[in-house]
Design a protein around this nucleic acid. Structure first.
Lengths: 341, 341
DNA sequence: TTAGCTCAGGAATTCGTATTCACGGACTCC
DNA sequence: GGAGTCCGTGAATACGAATTCCTGAGCTAA
């Protein structure tokens, strides 16, 4: 049957309290007793019952993350992989672990976060990309749950870690302007996606400041959709000679469409995108891309959350951190750069 | 303060037991009482305390997964993304959720699985790619913990879901032979990786049966390492005219090295790899790849595990399922196929 | 009419651990 | 040398929900 601290106590001729103290590493237990208890525990193959422990100590030692259901195209999304690996790696060494749920729809996400925290299934959450004006998030914040937002919490006083998508958009656009292009377009994701809009905003601001006209297109996420939209763009009356594209996957679609349309990259079409993923090295002539510091962002967010969990009293303080981004220039945007992949 | 069933009971003028019964959906509660209780719960914004519930009902409603630390190159591994999305999606509708931990080393993985189960942090696990002769896994099996292996459990009587890597290796090789190639090599991962060895075995068997000599190379995982190794291969005295490569990412590295070595794919070098990921469509002229049915494998494994959790009495029975694999032919292995990406 | 049965719901118990309180002995300090 | 302090340990309690046991009311059947 199940071995409990009671059993260990009996075998080691001590009380259950002492067993608990040994496990907790309480200094006040005599080393002789401690060793006896530890030896018995080892022999009996005792493991603390996490359920009882979390019940009694009021802590599940779990942090939560809610994804939303991927579209078919984003099943292989490398960002999710980075996210999960980054979080679990940052959690190593702490007592906390990660639990993940999936929301069917965008709106369901906040419902699940709410339920997770209120039913105490987790001690805190990494809140992924809240929607603007998320009332549930606001209430959770008021109730002082440990939350760190990955993205933009809007006006809410919640600790957040984000990257500067507007700036990233500017960097990409500025670079293309510096390369001498004047006819530069932006290909974003579906309308209303914050990340896409922000990068587009950076693009638009920069173009306006340079006195150049802006041209924006939208496509669904993923390679195929971007490729198809790019074909349409290249067939249009006055196609752009450079494109800022929402992410690397989509940019690869664009480059393939360029090739299929008889356009050479970067001579006939320059491309810059975002994320600086491994893809950028994979496709000739190399894809220029803005590195958004995702890994830093993730590990920083975890550190912030762990901080909150360890110092719950500091509830009032919150911070907003923007990780720096950096443009990596490769062959897709510059003839000067060798095809350094 | 915290709202408990006690509080609800008081407000609704019933006993705590009745509140619990209402929550559990017990038929025997009069509908009038039920509605009163439910209304009070809603007003008080009551949420069941998951910690107390899991303590009392002896179930955490969590299933566990242990990753091992990625090498730098596999941080963006799309397989992990598929895995997490597939699992969480398959779990939707059940009461179970996913929790993920990371092992620093390959050997630590089984330690963590062991601890998870023995300390009852999870109700069951999806056991990823056990090492051959994993003694800890054997003991867990004996102790009747709910486990489904994703991969090969060896001789252990544990339910498992796997793909047939040997067959996949055969399909890839057979195809290259059918294309008229005679000098076909295999580029695998690091030595001792089961998946790599199995695919290599399929390759070797097929070559032997066709009376052709085998040539195997190894590289570390990832794009860069494969590219570098491929350059070396192409510089060698008698380079192969076709390569079976461990996975798509590595195959892209190979194709890039081919281009850099003045070899045209598929004319001078044919390439076939495994996974049939989105990459295959991304790189010209399209990468032939064996689709291993990962998505099916994942959702099947989850279903099996849920089955075990719901029918723990059927402990003795175990099954082994092999999901079918299928070769997708693209431009990298056949001149006949248009560059259909 | 009464023994027996059904049924809704209350009272009491239980799960395994962490923690608080209590206690006896050893020690310190004036 | 007596009062106060510290220390190691055991006894007792609390955590919140699920569950078992029990009760009293209403019903059926002989």
């Amino acid at each position: 049957m199940k071995v409990t601290q009671q059993d260990i106590a009996r075998l080691a001729q001590v009380s259950q309290s002492t067993v608990s103290r040994v496990i907790a590493g309480d200094e006040r237990v005599a080393s002789e007793v401690r060793e006896r208890v530890q030896s018995v525990m080892r022999q009996a193959n005792y493991h603390v019952d996490a359920r009882a422990k979390s019940f009694r100590s009021r802590s599940t030692e779990l942090i939560g993350l809610v994804l939303h259901r991927p579209e078919e195209e984003t099943r292989e999304d490398p960002f999710l992989s980075m996210l999960v690996q980054g979080i679990t790696e940052s959690l190593a060494g702490s007592c906390y672990r990660l639990t993940i749920e999936q929301a069917r729809t965008r709106g369901e996400q906040s419902r699940i976060y709410d339920d997770m925290l209120r039913s105490r299934r987790v001690d805190g959450v990494l809140y992924l990309e809240p929607e603007v004006g998320d009332a549930r998030l606001a209430r959770l914040q008021k109730d002082n749950f440990p939350i760190v937002v990955l993205g933009n919490p809007g006006p809410l006083p919640i600790t957040s870690v984000d990257n500067d998508n507007v700036l990233a958009g500017r960097l990409a656009t500025r670079h293309l302007i510096d390369q001498g292009h004047t006819s530069i377009g932006y290909l974003g994701g579906p309308e209303g996606i914050l990340v896409s809009d922000e990068r587009g905003e950076g693009y638009a601001n920069t173009m306006r400041e340079a006195g150049m006209p802006t041209r924006c297109w939208h496509a669904r996420f993923g390679f195929h959709s971007a490729r198809q939209r790019a074909y349409e763009i290249f067939r249009s009356p006055n196609p752009p000679e450079a494109l800022v594209v929402l992410d690397d996957t989509m940019a690869v679609g664009v480059m393939q469409a360029a090739e299929g349309s008889g356009l050479y990259v970067p001579r006939d079409l320059a491309v810059v995108s975002f994320n600086d993923s491994i893809l950028c090295s994979m496709v000739p002539p190399g894809l220029s891309s803005v590195n958004l510091g995702m890994n830093d962002m993730i590990s920083l967010a975890v550190r912030r959350l762990l901080g909150q969990l360890q110092h719950p009293e500091a509830g009032a303080a919150h911070s907003r951190t923007i990780v720096p981004c950096e443009l990596k220039i490769r062959g897709s945007s510059s003839l000067l750069v060798e095809a350094t992949l």
